[in-house]
Design a protein around this nucleic acid. Structure first.
Lengths: 351, 351
DNA sequence: AACGTTCGTGCGAACGTTCGCATTAACTAT
DNA sequence: ATAGTTAATGCGAACGTTCGCACGAACGTT
């Protein structure tokens, strides 16, 4: 490797002190245009690049943000991961930062220790966290250490920290309204267990839209279980076995996996998805548009969220102040496809 | 934030020079057990953690690896990304390293500049690269600068660097043999354009398996296009329009998207996938097991590859030597499902 | 006792920059 | 001419550690 040019060599060539070179680079002191031009020429001619490490040591800033996320089970892709990461490190780059990734340990103590390590060794300036739980130990650790961070997702209300969340309730309201607009009056929901904060928030939107339409859903219409294909399949079978006066013709699901299972259950009974049973999902996983029929699903504005999280964190690092508002809610978008409308042109022209 | 404990405070408490404390930490010089014990106690009592930045500056090592990857188009998920990243940073952590992520710029000049930036500022010790192209500028830049790196994927043979690849040819041979074993003798292939290195390598496996079975495929059986659902749909329609003596009953596809399109084309004609037309894909994207019927597909050993890449790079950084063998080929695994066998138990018990 | 060797520890300096203050020159006002 | 102010630049030291050498003590051999 070629020997790295130092600031002292630039100073010598430009005929100034090396501290003056530093002043030009950091822009923190006044330097005459003539001197500055001379220095910039020397920088260019010598191909000088400041050492990140030396700057970091002196300035007490690493220009690094860290993010860790739970691995998806083998049989599920994380539908937003690529775009989420891409948006974050692209925005970070605009600010001279990089995104460092590290394992999300299953054991909470090991998980917190990994965060503490990065803090203690001065490795990162701040954190992005997601998949936030009630009394999340990571949040507690970062708050206690007064470490800058931002979160995708909310925690319990007494923990106060900057966050962005998707308004899942608004999303389910949108999906439910859409089915109502398609003429459906018997609309069921596949939901997560009652201790799921995100799940309950989404379900509120479903109830709210039905209430607006003057519909009181019977308890049978809300079926709770795991957000998986098999649960969706079995739950939908049960729903389709209800008496005709009660049997739903519409179904909103809290995620795409359940919706896929529901589609298979309907098709097993010879029903036409979108016509006999209209189905919506949540997440708009990339491949759902290639199902037959393509699935209507709620899409999160992942790029914008990732970008905004980094912006919030940058502001926090630059000003030492918390963002206002502290928490923002982003609206999902309903991607309407044939699983709810019954209308599909075919696979020739899909991408 | 609590004031960080320095090595000098540890030295004072242990009654030794701070250089001796450093010797205990790095283990690079002999220290008596009594002195060492005294120092370790002081480290523990004071909660001392060495400053990464200071160590980095002095030792000329950042303990950071970098990885950048092309974003997936909006309508396609990267099926292996999560696991690939997880495997790499988990292995890196075992070696005291972290994985830094950064944008893969569309413009080749900007892309190389991003790599050069990280090199010039001493930000990373080495790189992992993937999606390697012929005469890939990143490879050229890293070779020229003598920067340690490892690659997932091969380039042109005159560029010599450490790499791991999946034996796509072996995979397609496996898939083709599997269809032969299912009794199919008319087996077509959906492939990428002729300038695709990976595509041609995979297709060699198809030809090889047919040759072994004494079958010479007519030119009509190999259809080339983009690895997308719509291409797969249209190409399969064309294949199914061939005269019965030529019409294939088996189809190997170079990726899952084409296979999905093929399935839809078969079903459009009222054919039963797995029985009337047996189909295989490549990548085993997580959701293909939830298609109806679930898709037979080749799975790459992503975790092992990621882990091994980091190990190779660590060895290179520790010894300054290239790995032997320089390139390793990993075998994919054929995940047999109903799209090729026609046998499917149903969705109750899938996850 | 004198000499040679080995072990254990301390020291000086380096790594490459930024921070905060001091100094000097130039300009303006009285 | 003198005093005060401002702008521009240089300097000393700091950031927190590691590297490489020097030195003293202890031990073994002659």
């Amino acid at each position: 490797m070629a020997k790295r040019v130092t600031i002292k060599e630039v100073a010598q060539q430009a005929g100034v002190s090396y501290q003056t070179v530093s002043k030009v680079i950091t822009g923190k002191a006044q330097v005459t245009p003539e001197t500055e031009a001379r220095i910039r020429k020397a920088i260019h001619d010598l191909g000088y690049r400041p050492s990140h490490t030396a700057r970091s040591l002196r300035s007490n800033r690493s220009y690094t943000l860290a993010y860790s996320w739970p691995p998806s089970p083998r049989d599920q892709a994380n539908p937003i991961l690529d775009q989420f990461l891409q948006s974050m490190f692209t925005e970070a780059e605009q600010h001279g930062y990089y995104l460092l990734t590290f394992p999300y340990h299953a054991d909470p103590a090991a998980r917190v220790a990994a965060y503490q390590d990065l803090i203690d060794t001065g490795r990162v300036d701040g954190f992005i966290i997601s998949s936030v739980e009630y009394n999340d130990e990571r949040v507690l650790c970062l708050l206690e250490n007064k470490i800058p961070f931002v979160a995708f997702g909310r925690s319990n209300p007494e923990l106060v920290f900057p966050c962005i969340d998707v308004d899942g309730g608004a999303g389910l309201r949108m999906a439910t309204r859409h089915l109502l607009e398609q003429g459906h009056r018997q609309i069921a929901a596949l939901a997560w267990p009652e201790d799921s904060r995100v799940g309950n928030n989404r379900l509120e939107g479903y109830f709210s839209a039905l209430q607006e339409a003057g519909i009181t859903p019977p308890p049978d219409w809300v079926v709770r279980g795991e957000g998986r294909v098999s649960f969706g399949f079995k739950a939908t079978r049960r729903l389709l076995a209800l008496p005709p006066g009660q049997r739903p013709t519409g179904l909103v699901c809290l995620n795409d996996a359940m919706a896929i299972g529901a589609m298979h259950a309907a098709q097993e009974r010879g029903l036409q998805v979108g016509v006999d049973l209209a189905i919506t999902g949540f997440d708009d996983a990339p491949m759902v548009q290639y199902l037959n029929p393509p699935l209507t699903s709620l899409r999160q504005p992942v790029w914008e969220i990732g970008r905004q999280l980094i912006q919030m964190l940058m502001d926090q690092l630059d000003t030492g102040e918390q963002p206002d508002p502290l928490c923002s809610l982003y609206q999902p978008e309903l991607m309407v496809r044939a699983s709810s409308t019954g209308q599909f042109a075919g696979f020739e022209n899909v991408s």
